[in-house]
Design a protein around this nucleic acid. Sequence first.
DNA 1: GACCCTAGCTAAACCGGTTTATCTCCGGCT
DNA 2: AGCCGGAGATAAACCGGTTTAGCTAGGGTC
Lengths: 324, 324
Amino acid sequence: MDIAAAAGVSKGAVSLALNGRSGVSDATRARVLEVASSLGYRPSVTARALSSASADAVGLVLVRPPRALGDEAFFFQLIAGMQSEMSSALLLQVVSSRDAEIELYRRWWAEHRVDGVFLVDLLVDDPRVELMSSLGLPAVVVGGAGHHGSLASVWADDYAAMTSVVEYLKSLGHRRIARVAGLSSLLHTVRRDQAFLASVVDGVIVAGDYTAEAGAVATRRLLESGEAPSAIVYDNDVMAVAGAEVAGGLGVSVPDELSIVAWDDSVLCQHGRLTALSRDTFAFGARAARALLAVVDGASPTDVEDVLPELVVRGSTGAPSARG
Amino acid sequence: MDIAAAAGVSKGAVSLALNGRSGVSDATRARVLEVASSLGYRPSVTARALSSASADAVGLVLVRPPRALGDEAFFFQLIAGMQSEMSSALLLQVVSSRDAEIELYRRWWAEHRVDGVFLVDLLVDDPRVELMSSLGLPAVVVGGAGHHGSLASVWADDYAAMTSVVEYLKSLGHRRIARVAGLSSLLHTVRRDQAFLASVVDGVIVAGDYTAEAGAVATRRLLESGEAPSAIVYDNDVMAVAGAEVAGGLGVSVPDELSIVAWDDSVLCQHGRLTALSRDTFAFGARAARALLAVVDGASPTDVEDVLPELVVRGSTGAPSARG
DNA sequence: GACCCTAGCTAAACCGGTTTATCTCCGGCT
DNA sequence: AGCCGGAGATAAACCGGTTTAGCTAGGGTC
């Protein structure tokens, strides 16, 4: 420790001085600070983390086929939002299996590489919730639709949002409404399913996986079935756009014969003039970051409910035609 | 070091054994490995990094207003591609100034937090190139259009690509061609400018900044000018889509009265049926990751030229009308 | 004046590895 | 038999901080 020598004090004193802790006189502290800044001193997070302090980074593990990830604007928006509220770095890794994800959390925590982690894509009965508690790893559940054990959570009320969408469609006169869902293993998918089924009069749910292909296939199946719906609610923008395209190809006019609503707004929806459920993903990420930093700082975990997503009505929804 | 005790050897021997280095007998090595695995031992990257070894992470700093970042699918594709080839994690941070970026590289390297970094958004006379050399920080320039000092580089030939786009438009019969460029401080913008001006007969360049607003404004200006171009080449997908929209609003039909080409293909272009210069950003990221890992491993820096982007012709380009 | 307390600082241990210097055998060579 | 060399292992230093125990001097109390 060269500042110690330069300032004529011991390593320990320097540490105390730089970290604003008591044990050194104001005069000494001032001198150390001055020497430190004049030397352009940067404490080594690595060394600091080694002796059990902050790692100055938080982690995020994404379980996806990497190739598919690139089209998911959602996550990047989220990451951008998180970063806007963090002065520390984000340790990011994309893995292909849930086991690898869990393994990574264990490692990162054991190695003091992160101070906390974000948990996304919460599953039904997600094992990670238990893992975090047993590890004592500070974590915040992002978008997990509700409360989870002892973990902090930042979420939007998917149930209420779905209900409002269906109510909106019903108010337009739709009765036969379909939903093209996302991955059924995800908690929020289940939540939306429940809300959908509870408020819809005559509804049908088709499973999807957020890809354009899935959206197209599901839409074709729905439209070619004997009792085609007059409105479809998609679980993301990509599927909705693909669905609109399929409808066009089949000669089904939007919104006259088919109303379309997309979950998650994006440039894609704006351009396609799709009515979309818009949530501010960036702000959501920022909120998640604040929550995690608080937990890392020792605050007791809290649940933050995000504002309800807002339905942006564009050209893709309207009253159903007579045949609907 | 509890494995040392459990295996009945010294710390040093364990280190040698686990890292596959000579100095221990095969018998001892086997015993140590067995004990280690039975104990579920994970070496601490933190501690390891402290005594000057691998940090098991590479860095990426993005200089952007975080809010704008979310719409840039390019970067997320790139990151996804990088991750597909890396077993290590990516340390990601978004900062708002070039100075902060440079400061971060210094810190990360000084603190052994990263083994190397990706350099994106290369500027004309980019100070980072010199910095990397002087720091001795392994780095690879991503998309920097050419060779950079002693640094490894992964790039696509923007010059040739732009030339091919212009040639294509000329072959359709276009003479008056415009270009809506990206940030003029970026090296590849300059490169594309040069190629554009060299091959175009009667061209004009308007500056943009990748946002939809910029694309719209530039397009309106071009179309309302006395000598409107019959074709416009945009520097990214977002601006191109916005441009197409403006054209529609002005009653200029695409592609009859105006041909549109977007740099970088995406869901947006696919859906908007825009002719686009498609590069496989994911594969590009993967290539960059391989290059960086090689440099980190001590390989001498090489330049990897990516395959030439491919022009995907869709409905937005065609022969100019008589008035063109 | 003896006693205690505390502010201010230092020395040293510690975190969990890697690396170097050293030490001990054991075998081969002359 | 004497000498040398190398394999196999260990102890200790080191990386750059934090933290704890301990020391010293000065001030207050009775």
